[in-house]
């Protein structure tokens, strides 16, 4: 077999390659974000002349101050926070109870509901815009944040449900049975014993849904027409029309908008992997 020296060499080569590939992935993932940042701090007058330099010769915060003080951006940002936050909140509640039922009950309608949820993932969503508009308009839910929240919640519930189910599958049934014997109804046992134990799973689902709602453009564009109910992606597009294409400001707005989504995601991505693992173990 191999000599110790040989195997040490092999180990070095292996880990060398390993770290090299990791570095490549990190660079690939981060470079576009870096470029976003770079454009946002480049002064307008040298944006095109120094377009391909890795770092501009001068930097400025002007784009950020403009976005924060002169534009509607803070307003859009608030709208987005409200919409994404509420969507994440309601989706989690609904997905938690549904995922719990999928995990714990065997019932006739289950397969139909699961099939329905899977099929909803196949829709070309574009096609739903007009009908949804049709349904929401008479209820006064178009051009309103509430309408957006309802639509986003519906779109996110299926995946969030499957995610939550995998978390519940990882929690032994004995626990709520013990609670039921101790004096809880099933729902109380779910709320007081099972839910607290799935907090990481709930965090993962919250973060996932928040990010998804934060990015959504199509429905935000189509269901909302007034400035006051626009979310930030729509607002970002308005930079294009209103100020000519002011890329510096747009990228500055983009960087600012990235912050909450990324912060949220960084916090929860670990639980996302854990949660999926917990479900996978169960089969």
């Amino acid at each position: 077999m191999s000599t110790p020296g040989n195997s040490a060499l092999r180990k070095t080569v292996y880990w060398g390659t390993h770290y090299l590939m990791i570095a490549a992935f990190v660079v690939f993932a981060l470079f576009p974000l870096y470029w976003l940042l770079k454009v946002s701090v480049t002064p307008n007058d040298i944006l095109y002349t120094e377009g391909v330099r890795m770092w501009p010769s001068r930097t400025t915060w002007d784009n950020y101050t403009f976005v924060m003080t002169q534009s509607n951006f803070p307003h859009y940002f608030m709208n987005s926070v409200i919409v994404s936050g509420s969507t994440a909140f309601f989706t989690c509640i609904i997905a938690a109870v549904t995922g719990y039922a999928f995990s714990r009950f065997r019932f006739r309608g289950k397969i139909i509901i699961v099939a329905l949820m899977l099929i909803t993932q196949m829709f070309p969503l574009v096609m739903l815009i007009a009908p949804i508009f049709r349904i929401l308009a008479p209820l006064g839910l178009t051009d309103s944040l509430t309408g957006l929240i309802i639509v986003y919640t519906a779109f996110n519930v299926p995946f969030a449900t499957f995610l939550m189910q995998s978390f519940f599958d990882g929690i032994p049934k004995d626990l709520e049975e013990a609670a039921m014997i101790d004096g809880n109804t099933r729902f109380e046992a779910f709320r007081r014993i099972i839910l607290p134990l799935t907090l990481p799973g709930i965090a993962a689902t919250l973060g996932f849904v928040f990010t998804a709602a934060w990015s959504e453009l199509l429905f935000a564009l189509m269901l909302v027409s007034s400035e006051s109910a626009s979310t930030f992606p729509v607002g970002l597009l308005s930079f294009v029309s209103k100020f000519g294409v002011d890329f510096g400001q747009m990228m500055a707005a983009g960087v600012l908008a990235l912050i909450p989504a990324c912060a949220f995601f960084l916090l929860i991505q670990r639980y996302l992997v854990q949660g999926l693992t917990a479900g996978a173990v169960k089969g």
Binding site: L175, E177, A178, I181, D182, N184, P196
Partner: peptide, 19 residues
């Protein structure tokens, strides 16, 4: 319901509330 039967049960897994 189990809660109305006034019985107590000890499980094989113990089923202690972890939190």
């Amino acid at each position: 319901q189990p809660k109305d039967r006034d019985i107590a049960m000890v499980f094989q897994s113990y089923a202690l509330y972890p939190h």
